[in-house]
Lab assay of single mutants.
Amino acid sequence: STVKVRLGHLEVTLHNVSEEDVRELRELWKNGADEEDLRRWLEEWKK
């Protein structure tokens, strides 16, 4: 499914993403990950 995730002022649209992935991303964000960390996660996730 396609999910729009809003993290601060960063809005990311993920395609074919699982609930688990979204949860993981939100956890990262809650734990103080900055945009760099999130971008890195997204790069990994896209592979």
Rank of each mutant, 00 (worst) to 15 (best):
E27V: 02
T13L: 09
H9S: 14
H9L: 11
V5A: 02
E11P: 01
E43L: 04
R26K: 15
E36M: 11
S1K: 13
T13F: 09
V17R: 01
R6M: 13
V22D: 02
R40D: 07
E43A: 06
V17M: 11
K30D: 15
K47W: 03
E27F: 03
G32T: 03
L10P: 00
D34K: 12
R6E: 04
K4I: 15
L42N: 00
K30G: 12
V17Y: 03
L25R: 00
S1Q: 15
V22E: 09
L14T: 00
D37V: 14
V3C: 03
L25I: 08
A33K: 03
R40Q: 12
H9I: 11
G8L: 02
T13W: 09
E20C: 05
V5I: 15
E19I: 10
S18N: 09
S18V: 04
K4F: 01
S1N: 14
V3H: 03
K30Q: 14
V12Y: 09
K46V: 14
T2N: 07
H15F: 07
L38N: 00
G32S: 05
E35A: 09
W45N: 06
S18M: 07
L7G: 01
L28T: 01
E27Y: 03
L7H: 02
E44T: 06
K46T: 13
W41T: 01
L7A: 04
H15R: 07
K47T: 09
W29N: 12
D21S: 12
R39A: 10
L10I: 14
S1F: 10
V3A: 03
R23S: 09
L42I: 15
K47M: 06
E19Y: 07
E11I: 10
W29M: 15
L42G: 00
E19Q: 12
K4W: 00
E27A: 05
E27G: 02
L42D: 00
E24H: 10
L10K: 10
L10T: 13
G32N: 08
G8N: 05
R39F: 11
V22P: 00
D37G: 09
E19N: 08
H9N: 15
L38H: 00
R23T: 08
E27I: 03
E44C: 08
G32Q: 06
H15M: 08
N31E: 13
E11A: 06
V12E: 04
E35V: 11
E20D: 13
D37I: 14
S1V: 13
H9E: 14
D34S: 15
K47A: 11
L38S: 00
N16H: 11
L10A: 08
V3E: 02
W29E: 15
L25K: 00
A33W: 08
R26H: 15
L25G: 00
H15V: 09
D34H: 12
V5L: 14
L7N: 02
L28R: 06
G8A: 05
R39Y: 11
K4P: 02
L25N: 00
V3T: 04
E35L: 12
R6F: 07
R40Y: 06
W41N: 00
N16I: 02
K46I: 15
S18D: 06
N31V: 05
E11L: 11
V22G: 02
K30T: 12
L7M: 11
D37C: 08
L38I: 09
E24M: 13
L42P: 00
E27M: 04
G8Q: 04
R23V: 08
R23W: 10
T13R: 04
L7C: 06
L42K: 00
D34Y: 07
E44K: 14
E27H: 04
E24Q: 15
K30I: 15
H15D: 07
D37Y: 08
V22S: 05
R23C: 09
S1L: 14
S1D: 06
K47H: 08
W29C: 11
V5R: 00
E24N: 12
R6W: 06
E20K: 13
G8K: 05
V17Q: 01
L42A: 02
E19L: 09
E11F: 05
E11M: 10
